[in-house]
């Protein structure tokens, strides 16, 4: 997906100003910025709920402005914050929406619906015949994601999809969404105002302000090298700590000079796959100052607080 000099003007005011960036296939690009930064407007121009004033948006090299809007929209998954499930249709009917519009045979729709409900963690036999009003907010949002995925769209647009659920449910939904996205290889354009969500989900993060793209970079680079004071402030003064979410224990230098037997027995056992943030929390909680890194049964070395400190400070 590519934006080329895309602009949107409302009554003389530029809501989006010469926006250009590319989202590699199968990746998640998160548009993040304060309200009024033009992120939602940019997203809605992709499926032409809003028509750009200038520029072009390409999907797979094809200009969306040259396509018939309803046909275009059926090929693009769309998830919004309020979910927008159809209250008069059952969960199964909601999920089957786009396949039905595309004229799939009934049996294929039924099979796909069941598969999708299971994929988003909703037991099909329990949920298929219920109505949206009978579901919790988190369950409704899962249905929203399933509905968007129904016709296997190569591209998904998500506008603050997890904004209306509580933090615990949001965290779970984010993890499940990442798993599904990796699994399906969908290209995703994701809008949020929450920088933590952007860092967690984005392969690339586009920071917007006043309709302009301020910085477009992978999250680690955004945290390490904010291009200006606005981005630095937006990512937060704790950006060093935030980076720890992106780094794993296996990715840093361990102290291999210490024998395992010499390490305090209180020290937590860490796997190479856990994030430095989790490692830090467990090390602080154990009062051992170090963590023992073990890959299955193999002892790899110890992780020290000073190593983590260096990663927080490290701006390179």
């Amino acid at each position: 997906m590519e934006f080329r000099d895309v602009s949107k003007r409302y009554a003389g005011q530029l809501a989006v100003d010469q926006l250009s960036f590319k989202v590699p296939a199968g990746r998640i690009c998160v548009l993040v910025g304060p309200s009024g930064s033009g992120k939602t407007t940019s997203l809605k121009m992709v499926n032409r709920l809003i028509e750009p004033t200038g520029g072009s948006i390409l999907i797979d090299g094809r200009d969306v402005l040259r396509e018939e809007p309803t046909a275009l929209r059926r090929r693009i998954g769309y998830v919004i914050q309020q979910v927008g499930l159809f209250p008069h249709q059952t969960i199964a009917e909601n999920v089957g929406t786009v396949p039905r519009l595309l004229g799939w045979p009934k049996e294929r729709i039924a099979a796909r619906t069941e598969q999708l409900l299971a994929l988003v963690g909703l037991e099909p036999s329990r949920f298929a015949l219920r109505y949206p009003a009978q579901l919790s907010g988190g369950e409704r949002q899962r249905v929203g994601v399933a509905r968007a995925l129904a016709a296997e769209p190569p591209v998904m647009l998500m506008d603050e999809p997890f904004g209306a659920v509580d933090p615990i449910v949001r965290d779970r939904l984010q993890n499940e969404f990442l798993r599904i996205q990796r699994d399906q290889g969908t290209t995703v354009l994701f809008v949020t105002h929450d920088i933590d969500e952007a860092i967690k989900l984005g392969d690339r993060v586009a920071v917007m302000r006043g309709g302009k793209l301020v910085q477009y970079a992978p999250p680690a680079e955004l945290l390490a090298h904010p291009v200006n004071a606005f981005v630095a402030e937006f990512v937060g003064s704790d950006r060093g700590l935030k980076r720890l979410v992106l780094l794993t224990v296996g990715g840093v230098d361990l102290d291999t000079t210490v024998a395992r037997a010499a390490v305090s027995p209180n020290a937590p056992i860490l796997s190479p796959a856990s994030t430095l943030r989790d490692a830090l929390v467990r090390m602080l909680a154990s009062e051992a100052q170090v963590g023992i890194v073990v890959d299955r049964d193999r002892y790899l070395g110890v992780l020290t607080l000073s190593t983590i400190g260096r990663m927080i400070r490290d701006d390179t």
Partner: peptide, 15 residues
């Protein structure tokens, strides 16, 4: 009819 329901319908490709 709630605005989000209408937006979802149009966004998913209802004519």
């Amino acid at each position: 009819v709630p605005a989000d329901v209408r937006e979802a319908a149009v966004g998913m490709g209802y004519a």
